[in-house]
Design a protein around this nucleic acid. Sequence first.
DNA 1: TTGAAAGCGCTAACAA
DNA 2: TTGTTAGCGCTTTCAA
Lengths: 331, 331
Amino acid sequence: MTTLKQLAKLLNVSVSTVSKALSDADDIGEETKKRVKELAETLNYKPNKLALGLKSNVTNTLGVVIPDILNPFFAEVLYGIQKQANAKGYDTLVCISNETTQTEINAIQLLKQGRIDGFIISPASQTIQTNNFTHLEAAKNERIKFVMFDRVDNNIQTDKVSIDDQKAVFSATEWLIKKGKSKIVYLSNIENLNISSDRKKGFHEALHKHNIQIQPEFELNLTNIETAHKTIEKFIKSNHFDAAIAVDNNSAIMFQSLLKSFKPELVNQITCIGFANSKTSKLAYPPLSYINQNATKIGEQAVDLIIERIKDKSDNPTYKEIKVATDVVEV
Amino acid sequence: MTTLKQLAKLLNVSVSTVSKALSDADDIGEETKKRVKELAETLNYKPNKLALGLKSNVTNTLGVVIPDILNPFFAEVLYGIQKQANAKGYDTLVCISNETTQTEINAIQLLKQGRIDGFIISPASQTIQTNNFTHLEAAKNERIKFVMFDRVDNNIQTDKVSIDDQKAVFSATEWLIKKGKSKIVYLSNIENLNISSDRKKGFHEALHKHNIQIQPEFELNLTNIETAHKTIEKFIKSNHFDAAIAVDNNSAIMFQSLLKSFKPELVNQITCIGFANSKTSKLAYPPLSYINQNATKIGEQAVDLIIERIKDKSDNPTYKEIKVATDVVEV
DNA sequence: TTGAAAGCGCTAACAA
DNA sequence: TTGTTAGCGCTTTCAA
């Protein structure tokens, strides 16, 4: 790595002259600037970011804590985060908590060691289930700035980005009802999170509004991937239904596939919808209509929020809670 | 952030005493050590990693450049990288190249600014298609250590981790043939990469070995997601076939779904196999047998290699090229 | 057993 | 217009 010192030596000037020349300070002669810049170019000089960070307490780096990168939703959020962070001149230090609180604590420790300006987190399911947010509280006390996304918690005061889960599922359910559907099976592989209960509320709300009876046996729990196929098969074989709504990224694809195997004659009459994006919707045929969660947008918004917060030096900030719009994409 | 200086002041000792006490140096009195450690604990002192990095030229951070995080394969590799890096005490600075060379160049620039000890990269498809590896050559000249994975290039001398693409597809094809299949359709959505041609070679090799004629119209190009369904539909409707092999992560799921729609009577007679993992294989019903690419393992191996290389101070290293074993998982 | 000083690469206030 | 100096947080050598 080329350093200022080396440039200075080669050019027979002082380190500070080189530093100033490179930043186009107006107290350096044009001639000198030119010489300095040329040599810097030739030697492919890049300022050492560690030194800059140490000096200025600004790292231009964002921490990102993601529960599960194998979940396409989080992968897409990460994509949005990266894209936006890059556009704004930030790098990302990424940690995957693997849904456990301990890994999350470690991650935040790492992120606290002066290496980031702030972080973006969606808490692990374990954290949410045990309601153990002490590490985030601690971060807050140490004035470390962070933004929560997707799995947001009401007890933590900070900036948040999510979708309106209840509304998203309400709209999708209503979309089905308006197509004349009334015997709708509800699929979820999401563990016991706020998101999950909000989504179910949206489902119930829509049924209620349209005077449709809630039937507990029409709500399938597919958390366990090993038994999911069996659960769906059993349901398909022994119930009358005319639509399916999945509140995660996978279950609708699965359901449709089983439907085609066990009741092929019904495929055209039964409408399936799930959370997805334009690409994953096409894994199924016919392609599934889907609830577009705008995961990329969530990531972008999270980045905007954290950068805004980083730049905001006020002591008593008013936190923002952004709801990214979702929409039903009919294919 | 608590610093050594602050601790020193509070304890009325010097900075160097604190530093040594915390690292258990044997020239510091037990009593002092105890006092220092207690206060450090209370104030939740964490050494500033930037300062450590600046001082020691060791960052314990790995750069990771990934072409496409929405591809489940790369997501899983990233998972493996994170897991292993963490286990070995490294953090990861992740960049997504989005399949373009320019982003990749930027990423490597970022990674070069003294922030990482080495990086792990799978080149963008653009980089490979234009055969433009100057940025990697440059990195090599600057003695920056890196490991290539998956999309490895013969012209770059460095450590590499990949699967034996030809062999993997050969084995899977042969697995189909041994089940009595001979009219096998070949599906690929992979752009023109080495991987792609190696996989096709494996396919041809197996056909050849078992005296099966190669039929170009049995090799479907599904690169364009918009036309993929149509292409498959047309094929299914107008050809006799008894098996399908997909050399990517999505096409087999898609193919099976279209098959069930257009030739449901054949589903039980036609065997589909694709690259997948235990989870994605279950998106289809019946679950697909799959070629297990061991993406997690690839990530882990890449981390092991880069760490080994970082620790190796020799001038003329012998580079390793690891082939991770694949296997056909019959469901 | 403890502390002072130098230095990693950089910036910025101040001096020349 | 250029250079000197101090300091960001840390480790380490050497001196006390």
